[in-house]
């Protein structure tokens, strides 16, 4: 395939355009996409399988007779109780209270984490002083905060929110700081040549570049917030305000094994569901950025 392209006086740029277009078409190639239904099924069946295995083991333990059934309820009884509770408006009220606390606490944690992360990553001195402190805070078990929180706020919702924020904010701040630290140097150099400095550089380059890491921080922050909240609701029982943690507490007091397990299932499902939301966001971002080029 000899291509002779002596650029004699003519219309070389027109020829270029066509040659380049031809080459580009070759380079790009066509994309393949599988059907939505099969993709959905591909993701669902492993989950169903996992659930089936867990149910089988659970039933196996119950049948083994290690505990009497009124202490450790089997799957059938638990699922029955779960169904009953889900038709009870009061139970839904408890779920709503818990979710309200989770959302409020997490939202405040995001604001706090963003602010702290932004300031600490921007200012070198603070970075040195607080960088490891923030990481240290992450390792602090949230239950250890409650005595202090109760001293400060009494047995109120503020005590719970306080601990939820302390649980989630360090992860969120850390996500942002890590993202800023690991902004690819080549992008910083390119931006410098383009003329980006200081705030403009931060806004248009560094912040967007740290988005994946920030999202990972959000996801981890959510997990911590949810754990702290459950711990808080078990410790700080507020009268006339039923919540999931409070239900768990009274189910144990009343030795209602099936009810207790049912509530645990609800807590698990909510936690996993919201984690899936973050996962979806993360995947969308990866697709947009082309970070997910290896199919496994």
């Amino acid at each position: 395939m000899a291509v002779d392209q002596a650029p004699a006086a003519g219309q070389p740029s027109d020829i270029h355009a066509r040659q380049l277009a031809g080459l580009d078409a070759l380079e790009l190639g066509g994309g393949t996409s599988s059907g939505l239904a099969s993709r959905l099924w591909g993701r669902t069946w492993p989950m169903l399988l996992a659930i089936a295995i867990v149910l089988a083991i659970w039933q196996g333990v119950v049948w083994s007779g290690r505990w009497p059934e009124y202490v450790f309820a089997g799957p059938a009884e638990t699922l029955g109780t779960l169904g009953e509770r889900l038709t009870d408006p009061e139970y839904w009220q408890a779920i709503a209270v818990t979710m309200r606390r989770a959302v409020t606490g997490f939202a405040i944690a995001v604001v706090v984490g963003l602010a702290v992360g932004a300031v600490v990553s921007r200012i070198k001195v603070l970075r040195a002083a607080f960088g490891s402190l923030i990481t240290g805070l992450q390792t602090m078990p949230s239950i250890a905060w409650f005595p202090l929180a109760i001293l400060l706020f009494g047995l109120t919702e503020s005590a719970i929110t306080f601990v939820v924020i302390l649980g989630a904010a360090p992860s969120i701040a850390n996500g942002l700081i890590t993202g800023v630290d690991y902004t690819p140097p080549i992008l910083l150099r390119a931006s410098h040549v383009l003329g980006f400095r200081r705030l403009q550089l931060y806004r248009h380059v560094i912040l967007p570049a740290s988005l994946p890491s920030f999202l990972a921080g959000l996801k981890q922050g959510w997990a911590f917030a949810w754990r702290s909240l459950m711990a808080g609701e078990l410790v700080v029982i507020i009268a006339h305000q039923s919540s999931l943690g409070e239900r768990l507490y009274y189910d144990r007091e009343l030795a209602d094994s099936a009810g207790l397990l049912a509530t645990m299932i609800i807590i698990l499902v909510i936690g996993v569901g919201i984690d899936l939301l973050f996962e979806t966001g993360d995947n969308a971002l990866r697709r947009r950025w082309g970070l997910q080029q290896v199919r496994n």
Binding site: I186, A190, G195, F196, R288, W289, G290
Partner: peptide, 27 residues
């Protein structure tokens, strides 16, 4: 001074057009 680096050094979160626009955004 404008510079083209040894690698393309494009911003992965921006479209091709927005990448080029970054040069104009500063101005």
């Amino acid at each position: 001074i404008a510079m083209m680096f040894q690698e393309p050094a494009l911003f992965p979160w921006l479209t091709v057009s927005a990448n080029v626009e970054m040069a104009l955004r500063v101005q």
